[in-house]
């Protein structure tokens, strides 16, 4: 998959402080163009993946696969799934990068 232009926001519901947060990635023509972290309503993105904070935490700690989380309804994808499938390999790599960032939950 080359020269991808797309955007995806992960929406973390029920964060420990009760708030909703988002992490948005934007790619333009294959280049990583933007990363946003914020609180509340996320900006427009081609794909939105929403789920509870604890679900994302389990995925990042490799206790739960994102695939299983989607299949069981723990994560909710908004966007064209056919296009999402084309971009799945990129999303997987992004998740692996995220998993390497030291974090405490």
């Amino acid at each position: 998959m080359n020269f991808v232009t797309s955007s995806m926001s992960n929406i973390y519901l029920d964060c420990p402080d009760g708030e909703t947060r988002y992490l948005l990635f934007r790619f333009e023509n294959g280049e990583f163009a933007e990363l946003l972290l914020g609180q509340g309503e996320p900006p427009q993105a081609e794909f939105k993946i929403s789920g509870k904070y604890e679900t994302f935490a389990k995925i990042t700690q490799a206790e739960l696969s994102s695939h299983k989380a989607l299949m069981t309804g723990k994560l909710r994808l908004k966007g064209n799934i056919v296009k999402a499938l084309k971009l799945a390999a990129i999303a997987d790599r992004m998740n692996k990068v995220l998993a390497k960032i030291p974090a405490s939950y």
Partner: peptide
């Protein structure tokens, strides 16, 4: 159904933004 969405788009006059798949997944 998602397994046939790409083929349906390929056969129809609509582009990929106007043919969507559905699947047993959260939100889908």
């Amino acid at each position: 159904f998602v397994i046939d969405a790409a083929r349906l788009e390929d056969d129809s006059w609509l582009d990929e933004d106007h043919v969507m798949g559905f699947a047993p997944m959260g939100g889908q």
